[in-house]
């Protein structure tokens, strides 16, 4: 029994809902951060290139 529910088909569904929503949050937030990182990498690369020129 998990979370007071006997049938695995139900507690799996309950947990699947929560974890899929959490997964969505993590995925979305990683994409938010990714851009910041890319931007900082890009601008530092850009600086590098300009300095080399």
């Amino acid at each position: 029994m998990v979370l007071g529910i006997d049938d695995p088909q139900i507690w799996l569904a309950y947990l699947a809902c929560i974890f899929s929503a959490l997964g969505c949050m993590v995925y979305g937030l990683l994409n938010w951060r990714e851009e910041k990182e890319e931007q900082s990498v890009k601008s530092s690369t850009q600086k590098q290139v300009t300095q080399n020129q």
């Binding site: 969505c24 979305g28 990714e34």
Partner: peptide, 24 residues
Amino acid sequence: DRSLKRAVAVGGPFLLMMAGVAYV
């Protein structure tokens, strides 16, 4: 495209809080 990926962070929990809560 990135806006769509970011939107997932809001969309997933929103549906959980709507349909999930209503059914439970």
